[in-house]
Design a protein around this nucleic acid. Sequence first.
RNA 1: CGGGGCGUGGCUCAGCCUGGUAGAGCGCCUGGUUCGGGACCAGGAGGCCGGAGGUUCGAAUCCUCUCGCCCCGACCA
Length: 542
Amino acid sequence: MGHHNERRKPDAAAHRAKGSGGVRRDLLHPHGRKRGEPPQVYRGQRAGRPQPGRMSTAQSKNIIPRAQDFAAWYQDVVLQGDMAEPAEVVKGCMVIKANGYAVWERLQADLDRRFKATGHKNVYFPLLIPESFLRREAEHVEGFSPELAVVTHAGGKKLEEAYVVRPTSETIVGHFFSRWIQSWRDLPVLMNQWANVVRWELRTRMFLRTTEFLWQEGHTAHANEQEAREEAIRMLHVYAEVAEQVMAMPVIRGIKSRAEKFAGAERSYCIEAMMQNGLALQAGTSHELGQNFGKAFDVKFQTKEGTLEYVWQTSWGVSTRLIGGLIMTHSDDKGLVLPPKLAPVKVVIVPIFRKEEERAMVLEVAAKVAADLNAQGLTAEVDAREGYNPGHKFFHWEQRGVPVTIELGPRDVAAGTAVVKRRDLGTKESFPLEGLTGVVSGVLDRMQEDLLATAARRLRENTVTASSLDEVAGILTSATAEKGGGKFVMAHIKDDPACDARVKELKASVRCLPLVDEYDGPGKCIVTGETVSHRSVIAKSY
RNA sequence: CGGGGCGUGGCUCAGCCUGGUAGAGCGCCUGGUUCGGGACCAGGAGGCCGGAGGUUCGAAUCCUCUCGCCCCGACCA
């Protein structure tokens, strides 16, 4: 991009096309555009007669292709998919719009059900935390202080002690644990809270990293280390299952290096996903906090034997970042692609008609199809808006990621059929109206499976091994968030911050030591040459 | 925090160099014709040009200050 006057605005792609000195000029105007001349808008292909069984080739006019600029593509997809937009008036924040929030609600519902099923109960702690609390745990304060928002004034007066807006709640939870826990009979404590948190980030991207974000944080206290460890790993697997089974986003379950672990934890587990540009995204984390916060907040309990011990705690969280991962896993150059299990609307029926009598007939059948689908829990809508032709509607829903669209016109009604189109593949096929609900249900199921399979294949194909730091560098240096080319590089590396630092020089990081390593076996550390039991994932990341 | 850039109808921008009281495309509203992959025609609404000060008969345009936003780099779910 030659110039830098990009703004996060809905017409970003068109804007970039100009401001960038012609990134998309080829699409807009074959010979570029003269100063002062109004921008010409690419119209896409002229509508021809539909050819059943052929997939559409129309090109989105307001989403920049992935291959051209992945980061810009992501922005466009979020905007055009009506998922969110930058808050603008509040630095680094975003407005999650109805389409995006509905996805979050589905994720939330699924996660919440699994948390309850594993014995957790929901609670809520204050947004504001006494500043002194953060200081109690040395690593914790060091890790978070650069990104704290602090409330110093309230009620028209300066506060005696400032509050921080929670960046996470371990400290205030620790405070209350110390009041609630006295005996081994009080353990374990298994809690979760759905909340917003604030971290003053330098660089933000919608969903992936915003100043304020929504998440859940689980907080538990246990009588011994073993139990706490099992809890942390159990919840990691819950996250992985949601990622794979619900989001169709394959993940690697692993352990963070000491350098990358949560500030204040003994050990952090994570799920790492690979985005379409090959960059890693930490999609969820689960921490063994050891007795660190127990000691900092004096959370002691009396054992059966009568001795006094500090509790062993865990904490774990996933956030609205998952939605960013979802988008960067499945979406394409036409816009958002939502897996059926998370799509707020799974099916949209686009009625087609010319004459008035056709209109009534088609709409009647469309309403019946929608009713049948809804009766089976397959959320369906009829797009009966007037003033937009069918083509417009197809693009509209395509950009918003609706998994299945059904075209229903006079010819279909006459033949007792409907055209069913799958969002991810773009394939269209005609089916009898009789039994259509079952067909659509099957299509949705297959789409969900295929999305996971496709993403899993991409992860496999972009995972390579390396046995030296130079080799890692050779693989990763050319990869960028914009141009892609990222890989997961499996390499032996000692769990030592000094080794992490060498990887950081490559603008990459040690993502995790996989719990199950398909590339298993001991080898020599690419930095120190010492023997390491198995390979870690090294990648560029978000 | 360093380096770039930008603030003009809802959006993207032109106009600024060479002051004369604001335009285009998209979107929006109305009516009509359309409708199997982003329709067309006609009519219409909408802007004290980020803010403050200055120069001038006159400022979107020139000068000063200020606020905000975006992009690129070092930290992070």
